[in-house]
Each structure stands twice: as C-alpha cells, then as structure tokens.
Design a protein around this nucleic acid. Structure first.
Lengths: 357, 357
DNA sequence: TTGTAAGCGTTATCAG
DNA sequence: CTGATAACGCTTACAA
C-alpha cells in the first residue's frame, strides 16, 4: 500500500512511440518537434495528435546529446564570506530577472554558489562546471574575477557574461550599474541644496563597486571645484556598527562635513544613529545618503535618501545577451552600464551651516 | 583576430579517447569512472593516467541518458506577487543551505520560480518540469500547494520535499519551522515579564505560517488561562504601513494590549513607529515582538526582540532528505519541524501597567 | 578481470 | 516531403 505498483507506473512515452502511433517515421516526428519547415500539414497534424494522446515530452538529455548542446545556463553566484545582509537583497532580484527571461525559452537555469576566496583561484570556473554541461555562464559578484579562471571558459568556448563584476583583463560582455554616475547624481543633488563639505563612509575598500564610487566621489567634487578632504573619506565593512563608528570619527574631523554619503543603507543607518546619539539632527545638521534602497531605508527615521540599483534589469539584460551569444555564435563584446535612480526621502535637506570664508 | 580558430579549438575528449590512449576498452574505462570493484589496479592506473592526460571529463547528458537518471534536482520557488521584501531574506538562505549540501554530491541544482497564483493551478508542476529532466523536486513557498499539481509528480514517481509549505492532502516529506512553538516561546517570555493582555498584528491571514502562528497565539494564551481578546487580533499584509495602521487601531481598543506580537519585523517596525507617534514608549508602555530576525530588527530603535528562523538548515535538511529518497528509492514519509530561536533585544520589557481587577 | 556490443532517446544526413 | 539509419557519449549485460 505504501509502495507504488511499479508495473502500473506509466513509462514515459518516447519519440518512437509517437512515430508508431502516428504512422510516421521518427525523422518526421523529430522535424515536427523542431519546427522544421519541410513537413506536410497532414503529417504535422498526425504527429501532434499522437503527441497529445501519449502526453509525450522530449527527453532533454537525449536531445542535448544528439544536438551537442545542453540548453542549460549556469548562474555562478560569488558571495562574500561571511555573507553580508545586503547581498541577499542584491542577488535574488538578479536571479529573478534571469529566470524571468529564461522561462520563455527552452533553457534551464542551473545555479552554483562560491565564496570570494574560492573565486580567486585560477581553477574556480573549471571546478565549477567541469562535470556539468552548460551552454553559457552568468557570473554574479562584487569582486574582481581571476582572469586565469575565465581562460578555461575561453578555451572551451563557453560564452559568459559578468554581472556587476569585472576582471583585470578585458572580458567579452559585462552588465553592470553605474556606481560612478550614482555618486555624481547624489553630489549634484546635495550641491544644489547648498552642501560643500562632503564625507564618504565607504564599504569594503577593495570591492569593485566601492572603488568606482570612491572615484566618483572625488571626480564629482573636483569637477565642481569643491575640495576633497582626505580625512573625510573613510572605509568600513558595510555593517551598521562600522557606519556608526566612522560617523563618530567624522564628527571629530576638521572641517566637519555637512553631507555624508554612505556605502550602503546599513552604514547610513549606523551613521544616523551616531548623529542622533551625539545630539544632532538629520537632516537639519547633517544630510545622510545611503545606497541600495534596502528595506531599512524606509524603516529608519528619518527615512533614507538612497540609490536604487536596477538589479532585476541587470539579470534580465545579461541573460538576454548571453543567449544571443550562444545562439548566434556571435562574439558580442560589450559592456553595458545601467543607470541608477536617486530616491529622495527625508535624510537629506538644505545645508544650514553658515559658510566661513 | 576576433574569432577564435575553430580548428585549434580543443575538442572535448571522450571516453573512447581515454580507452584508446590507455589501451583498454570503453567498458573498463567506464568501470573505473563509476568505481566498479572489478577492475585491476593496473588497469585502473592506466585509465586514470589517460584521463588526466586528456583532461577528460564525462559528459553529463550522455551519462544521464545511459543511466536513466538526470543527476539534477530542481528547486521550485513559489513567490508572492508582488514580492514581499521579507521573501528575499527568506529564500536565499534556503538556496544556500541546499547548495551547500549539493556541492559535495554529483547533483546539479536547477531553479524554477513561479508565483503563488500559478502554483494554485493543477498543472503547475507539470508545466514546470515536463520539458526538464529532474530526479527530484524541492518546493519552497509559504502558501498551500495545490495537491492535484503534486499528483503529477506522484504519477511520474518523482520524489519531492516541501520546504516551509504544505498541501491540503498529506504529502510524503516536509521540512518546516515551528511557527506555533515560536509564538508559544514569545508568550512564555512575555508572561514572565508580567504581560497579560496580548495583541496579534498578523501578516497575510491565509498564508500558512500565519495560520499556524495565529493558532499558536490562541493556544498559548488559553493554556495559561489568559484571555483571548478577538478585537486584539488583526491581520495586515506584512508591510510597514499595515503594521503602523493596525497599531493605531489597537491603541483605540479596549482593553489595550501591553504586548504586541507582529507578523514580521517590518510590521513591528511600523507598530513601533505608530506607538512613538502617539507619544508612547517602547518597551516602557508597550512591548513589541517581530518575526524573522530581518536586518531591520537591528536598525530600528529600540532594537527588536524577534524570532530567528533556521532557513539555511531547512534547505540543507530538505535536500538531504530528498537525496536519500532518490538514491535509496526509499519512501520517506516524514514531517520535520525545526525549532525557532527567540532573539531578545530591547523592544520588550517588564509590564508596567497596573492590573485593574 | 576484461572486451564486445547493444542500448538510452534524439537529431541529422542521405537517399528516395 | 518522408524514411532509414548512423551518429551523440556513456553504461551495462553478456561473453570470454
């Protein structure tokens, strides 16, 4: 009673069954399945009827073997270790964007997760996919990729697209977001509010997003003839506590900043807490900006002005690109940088500090 | 220069190449590959040398076809639409738990994402995997699963494990967490602090986690001879605003609760904001408890007492169970409920309301 | 212990 | 437009 009757178990119908039932050959059935043009309407109909009747579904592995393709795309997620809370928020929308595109294709999405340390090794991708059979690779991460590791993919002629990361050597295709431009946007907005003394509470210094943003920070200030105070540029680890700590330090600096740009919303939350603890107000005394538009942005008070990153779109675009690389065997060589959106809430305001000349 | 020399492109070595190089037959090579015992050490060594020399890796699809297994496990994620922020936090740890187990096996992890509405249809799983070839299915969601849909899996004899969800009809294997017990833990703790008037700010009423928790809420109160006030039990949608709104309503109720248990940390954040807006304090006037131990719990003030759900472990356990179902062709019939952890922070405290007799 | 050869379910080539 | 039939790369009886 517990065990299913194995004799009764419906054997999966095969293409041969379909051929027999429809009275046609396997070749014709296959042609119908693959939408080849040279099939008479009559034959097509017979085959389709048989397929329906038998509830036939082609076996993907057999198909792969015969065609020499896998119809599988692998998403390699490279994570910080220990995992930062913000990565949850970053990765899943990307996965969704990818799946959203793939669900209307015949591709399957396979997943592999590795840590940054492993991804630094030169055999990372080889180990990841050597016993798999994938048509292409999507690489999602926030740290530089070991180029040697990518060489394996080049050798095997497996197309790949980097999402939000890059390698030291130039790669074929990348989809990323405009870290640099996002900071420029923030600074433009704050300058308009009268701010002139900017501080940066950065996240992990070596992480590529942060590198770009730190550069954007300097570039934007210089371009507006504003001074870059090296003592107002600090780096932490993306966690609340480090935002808190660094903000305390900033309060002791000279000059004191009036606007603080943070590496993510958590650090911004920490910074705001530090400001409050010292008896100051946001945004009256200090304007604070986050990054990511994490949920915390709406939970803390004042609600956070921050940057929204188009992660879903990045995933979508990346996989679209990958598929056309696979199908057309085209060598797309392209770096796409998606713009970010400045979300203005209540943690930023007019600069109230009187200018000392 | 742009195009790779296709002639030069290393053709992947096949088992036949290995056989030739080693001077043995394909059968023997295959036996070595599959660790069959009846191979002489000498032959084994020759084969292994050849494998190394040729950099040979078996082609998974060919293997699958010959063996009649796919070595692939599919994770079906069923999401709310629109997606709730808290789901990001819930799903990825589960994926990691699953992958963490799978990475040491020969299984690949494939992913499929669907929305709750689709999952209600009777052909959901059929549509999901009919053109795939998977050995087993992991089902991750927070809503009741259409049993008819599962019947397809039963018919095809594809084992599956539900994670955090269930079906109306009994299913073979489930891994979930103890919603009911978590609420009991919370109430025990609050009773100890002197609270007697409890309110529930629930999330989506039909969601299975919420159903269990609402039941736990009533059961725990009754078991302690405390009164269940129906007007203090309200349901929202897991968002901050709804927590805020429902808390405002609670402040008008009679009796007024002194302890509020919320459906998740976001609703708790909203509730706390409402309390503050009305000039009361947490935890002096009201104790508030969240659920999930989301990042926001540490960001808001006071920091939130909440429940931590073992999502990683659930994923890990579920896939372990699934694999043994696949391998041993064993009919595991088992529901595993993992305990949750009460994380005590600063949003809860002694009840300061004087008892009116 | 080893080799041979027949599958596994499709696709693709080549005649017809 | 259709039908045979040889691949695709590997596993697994069955023989030796």
């Amino acid at each position: 009673m517990n065990k299913k009757n194995n004799e009764v178990l419906k054997k999966r119908a095969t293409l041969i069954d379909v051929a027999k039932l429809s009275g046609l050959s396997t070749g014709t059935v296959s042609r119908v399945l693959n939408n080849h043009s040279s099939v008479s309407d009559e034959a097509r109909k017979k085959v389709e009827d048989a397929i329906k009747k038998l509830n036939y579904v082609p076996l993907s592995t057999a198909r792969s073997l015969a065609k020499g393709i896998s119809n599988t795309i692998m998403l390699s997620i490279i994570e910080e270790n220990p995992i930062l809370p913000s990565t949850w928020r970053y990765e899943l929308p990307a996965v969704q964007g990818i799946y959203d595109y793939l669900k209307d294709t015949s591709y399957s999405l396979q997943i592999g997760i590795g840590f940054v340390e492993e991804a630094k090794k030169s055999k990372f991708f080889e180990n990841l996919i050597k016993d798999k059979y994938v048509d292409g690779l999507l690489i999602l991460g926030s740290w530089p990729i070991n180029y040697k590791s990518l060489l394996y993919l080049e050798d095997r002629n497996i197309p790949y697209v980097l999402i939000g990361c890059r390698s030291v050597a130039p790669t074929r295709a990348e989809v990323s977001f405009d870290n640099h431009g996002a900071i420029v946007k923030i600074i433009d907005y704050l300058v308009q509010l009268g701010h002139t003394k900017f501080a940066l509470i950065g996240g992990l210094k070596e992480q590529i997003h942060m590198i770009d943003r730190a550069k954007g920070f300097r570039d934007a200030l210089l371009a507006r003839d504003l001074k870059v105070y090296p003592n107002l540029i600090k780096f932490g680890d993306y966690q609340i506590d480090s935002g808190y700590q660094l903000m305390l330090e900033l309060l002791e600096e000279n000059p004191r900043p009036t606007a603080i740009i943070c590496g993510n919303d958590f650090m911004a939350a920490g910074a705001i807490r530090a400001i409050h603890d010292k008896g100051y107000r946001v945004p009256e005394d200090f304007s604070v900006v986050g990054f990511d538009d994490n949920e915390v942005a709406k939970v803390i008070s004042p609600q956070l002005t921050t940057i929204k990153v188009p992660v879903f779109e990045m995933g979508h675009l990346a996989v679209e690109k990958l598929c056309s690389m696979i199908q057309k065997d085209k060598e797309i060589e392209e770096i796409t940088i998606l713009p970010c959106e400045l979300v203005i809430r209540s943690s930023t305001g007019k600069c109230n500090q009187k200018e000392k000349i």
